[in-house]
Write a protein that binds this DNA or RNA. Structure first.
Lengths: 335, 335
DNA sequence: TTGAAAGCGCTAACAA
DNA sequence: TTGTTAGCGCTTTCAA
């Protein structure tokens, strides 16, 4: 006895209605030009009438390709990654791939879990938003022999493709920009302290040390960043180092929060304190004063990641590569 | 001749290594207690050694259940939805479901496309973030007989389950709050003008009309909202209605942008102009002055949606239901 | 241009 | 407790 079928319309239903075999219908969907015009038109009509939706699971199982790519980001609510996501999504969709998104909550263990999950779903490739992974995750990825793009930061040992920017150089650049602007008692405030933030901090130290300035004014916390936290960190810093004349905040959320705190304290920005952020989110260009920041090419990173992964999916050979997408310092009213 | 196999480790590989049949391995994964302890331990060891990852496509094809649910949101970058997403994700993950996310860009046509795509992926249910859909999308959903939750706003004719809040009543409530606070020449500024914004606008009108106040001070645009747009709209309004004493912005982004514009113009908030937003995003509690807003229970909406969909997936009967999750007016410094 | 047969990796139903 | 058999819906291969 046949198992109860799902009730869904299948290729077979279309085939029967049209009076051809199901291979012909399948072919008509994938390579229409290989089917005679008359048959094609009748098949298309039947598909329309019956509201046929192909079963991708069956297709993927049979062909070994799922036409989907996993995109893992640390956080959904952090708008930094939504730009990357847009770039990836657009590029992959054009090429006929569906993007499946997961968020790791900045945890490499959760990333590992998601890699496992998406491998089980049969994705054809991965876009990751870090270069740091668990050993097991790396083993899974290597074994799967799928194209993998690591984004956001650069690494000397990419798993496969690496698209990002040098976070340390960018941190140094904003430090130097503050120094050039005449500031001398420059602080750093950082939250979350993931790898990228640590790199920015190192860059800030590079700049200050090269100029013979003190790097003591450094306030960090593992807590996730938020506007309010920006205010809290700034308050703590003002208390410890009342002489501070500028602060580089590790991201724009903290910088905006610090700015709001300055407004609350009626502290003039940049008159009494200069502020700089990192990423170039929309808000940096909307506040008053507008915020100096490092504009990171997040959209371009996503687009490039998509482009490269599509190349690989279309047969380009595996050859580790590294793509430095650069960054731009935006000097605004806050410095 | 057998087709080239994928090279991946399969149930069969585990079975051979252990010396049992593959059903036993499959069973061991799904109902471990139905397999003898000795066999179970050896299977678990083999899975570990071989780094076996189940093929979910095959499993789904065979069982008719994919253990995944699609969540469609209008926008990824809009943090309003990231809270909903968190709630949904958490609830569904606990129950063993994977959430697949898509974003519609506020287009019901794109929503239709995504529903089609995710049906092709065999998802077991949908969480949508609106109550408005194309006819075809509704037909697809009805035919699929899957649990569907429509979130965010309420409707009298839910497709299935509806979890949200009455956007119009909320708009009216904030209007009334402004009136109670003594404001009389109250404006409305809105962007995007999706259904929810239209409802909030209608609520604002309700409040003003009930109090015998003019509803002429209404500035809207179909453009997507952003901080900068909030500033632009406010500028336009101040020009047209210089006597305005308060503005209800249809969302917090516009409200924050309007606040920044006031700061730029050295217009005192709330002294010369009061501002109110909608949603209760983090920023409303961080700016100076803090922003009066309507706090929407987005996280709770997501959690409730997850709970209800899981119930249905576990066999609860289809019975259209509507869940009003309410809202809360937060009176802050800006009014 | 079309079709028959085999099989992707898994699970459900039934039998032992 | 374990295994046999059949089939989920599709694509690939090969033949006509």
């Amino acid at each position: 006895m046949p198992r109860r079928s799902s009730g869904r319309v299948t290729l077979q239903d279309i085939a029967e209605r049209v009076g051809v075999s199901k291979v012909t219908v399948s072919r008509c969907l994938r390579e229409p030009q290989r089917v005679s015009e008359t048959v094609r038109l009748r098949i298309e009509e039947a598909i329309d009438v019956l509201d046929y939706i192909p079963n991708r699971q069956a297709g993927a199982l049979s062909s070994g390709r799922s036409l989907s790519v996993a995109l893992l980001v640390p956080s959904i609510s952090n708008s930094v990654f939504s730009e990357v996501q847009r770039g990836v999504d657009e590029g992959l969709r054009e090429a006929g791939y569906q993007v499946l998104m997961g968020h790791t909550g900045y945890s490499i263990l959760e990333e590992e879990r998601l890699i496992d999950t998406f491998l089980a779903y049969g994705v054809d490739g991965f876009v990751l938003s870090s270069t740091r992974h668990t050993d097991y995750a790396q083993r899974l990825l290597n074994r799967a022999r799928l194209p993998v793009v690591e984004t956001m930061e650069l690494t000397d040992n990419p798993l496969d493709i690496n698209v990002g920017l040098d976070q340390r150089v960018a941190g140094r650049a904003i430090g130097e920009a503050l120094i050039t602007a005449g500031y001398r008692r420059i602080g750093f405030c950082g939250a979350r302290l993931d790898y990228r933030v640590q790199q920015r901090l190192a860059g800030w130290e590079d700049a200050l040390k090269a100029a013979g300035l003190s790097t003591q004014r450094c306030q960090t916390t593992p807590r996730p960043s938020s506007y309010r936290l920006g205010g809290e960190l700034l308050s703590a810093m003002l208390e410890r180092w009342p002489d501070m004349d500028a602060v580089f905040c590790c991201n724009d959320d903290l910088a905006a929060g610090a700015l709001f705190e300055c407004q609350r304290r009626r502290l003039e920005v940049p008159g009494q304190l200069a502020l700089a952020g990192f990423n170039g989110l929309d808000i940096t260009d909307a506040t008053w004063p507008t915020l100096t920041t490092v504009i990171t090419p997040r959209r371009a990173i996503g687009e490039q990641a998509a482009r490269l992964i599509v190349e690989r999916l279309q047969g380009a050979p595996h050859a580790p590569s590294r793509h430095d997408m650069g960054f731009e310092i935006a000097l605004r009213q806050s410095t």
